[in-house]
Amino acid sequence: MRRFWMAGGIGIGLCLSFLVLIVVGTYSAAAGLAGAGAAGGRALGLAKGAVPAKYQNLVQKWGTLCPAMTPALLAAQLYSESGWNPSAVSPADARGIAQFIPGTWAGHGIDGDGDGDRDIWDPNDAIPSAASYDCELAKDVAGVPGDATSNMLAAYNAGAYAVIKYGGVPPYQETQGYVKAITTLAKSFERPVGRVAPSQQAAGAIYFAQKQLGTPYLWGGNGTPDQDGRFDCSGLTKAAYESVGIELPRVANDQYNAGPHPSRGELLPGDLVFFSDDLTNSRAIHHVGLYVGGGYMINAPYTGAVIRFDKIDTPDYFGATRVTKDGAAALPDRSADAKSP
């Protein structure tokens, strides 16, 4: 709250040695790249499609309003607040895409599009107002030691006075959690400036998924006994990473934000691969699979099919996410609204 489908499957008859090579290859790739990491500093560019196209220019422009802000950070806040829903209303009456409470809006809302009014429901006003409000807070705590971005986010959550009083991020569990969540989530909106660090849990997730090969698909399936161990696409990927201690959201378009986004040429086994009806909008993602190398994924494709291998290079291929534990933990809980896939 702003305080204020697929081509036909390859089947399951691939030889065991191929599966062994996949798992061993995952560990080998992780070992070989573990020291590489992401080069350079924080990115100002946005990952392809991470921000819906109709808001991308706004976020890119206003996300550079002050030095403590980046477009990815602004995107992370908006996604966390409303999931890009301009009609969202919280139980506390926070409104719109940026979730301003009316009293806060009265003092801090701006006419972002210059049309003569300040409309809390209009993203053309609300997104610039969110950036402007953050930068006001950054200015209020500019003299406080420590990281300017963390202090700005802490002021947003706990108030500027608390940041000044404690000389940095206050020792409040909620505030420290908020700062960590937004700064971590921002990484999923950044266009990488170097190689994305490999996942250390990838092999275990693949091992889980390959054990499900041949299992019939079930819309809404989570693999529970009453569902005869059946899955849909995002249920399978969620369960695969849950088996290695990472809790993903239930739906595919939220799973996309669980980590940074390697390019097609940088994919590693264990990456989640996504498919969308709109290649400019991650919210339109309709399918997810688990990449296993060689241009193939394990996935639960559709009703009437079984969990199987499929090629990823299709016209609706959207992109990939390298899941991280911190990235998954930073995602807002939308379980009450979750629907398959």
Rank of each mutant, 00 (worst) to 15 (best):
I312W: 01
V163Q: 01
G83L: 07
N299D: 15
D277S: 15
R334M: 06
K339S: 13
A203L: 09
Y172G: 04
T280D: 14
A88T: 07
G294D: 10
R230D: 00
T224E: 11
S234C: 06
S340F: 10
R191M: 11
I101E: 05
R42V: 15
K139D: 12
L33C: 07
T70L: 08
T215P: 03
V169D: 01
G220M: 03
F100Q: 01
K311D: 05
I127N: 02
A92Y: 08
A320L: 00
A197Y: 08
L137T: 06
G109K: 04
N253A: 10
F309P: 00
T321P: 02
F274D: 03
A209C: 07
D326K: 14
G35R: 15
N299C: 10
T314V: 15
L58E: 03
R3P: 11
I22A: 13
Y317T: 08
V20L: 13
G114C: 08
Y207Q: 13
V251M: 12
P170S: 09
G63E: 02
A203I: 09
Q173D: 13
T70C: 10
V193Q: 14
G35F: 15
G96N: 05
G245L: 07
C135R: 06
L218T: 03
D115C: 06
R334F: 10
D313N: 13
D122L: 12
A240V: 04
D122P: 04
A205T: 05
P315T: 14
A338R: 12
W121E: 09
A126S: 12
A39H: 11
D140P: 00
Y217M: 04
K180H: 11
I101W: 06
K61A: 08
A43G: 12
S132Q: 09
I101S: 00
V144N: 02
L290F: 00
K311L: 11
D134S: 06
A76T: 06
Q60P: 01
L272N: 02
A205N: 02
W105D: 01
R3F: 11
G41I: 11
G220I: 04
I110E: 04
G214N: 05
P216K: 06
L153P: 02
G204C: 07
S243V: 10
T104N: 14
A39V: 08
A258S: 15
S335D: 15
A92K: 15
G327L: 04
S87W: 00
N57S: 15
M297E: 14
A240P: 03
A336L: 15
P332L: 06
P249A: 10
G114N: 08
S80E: 06
P341A: 05
G8N: 10
S17E: 13
A106S: 15
V244H: 04
P170W: 03
G304R: 02
G159S: 09
F309T: 02
D134H: 02
G96Q: 05
Q255Y: 03
G116L: 13
S90H: 10
L153H: 06
K238G: 05
S150V: 08
G143S: 13
A92D: 13
G11H: 05
L268I: 10
L268Y: 05
A330C: 07
L290N: 01
T237E: 04
T314H: 07
G245F: 10
I101P: 00
P67V: 07
D337N: 14
D333V: 12
S199R: 08
L14H: 13
I182L: 14
D316M: 12
I285N: 01
I285R: 01
Y166C: 03
G204D: 05
G221T: 01
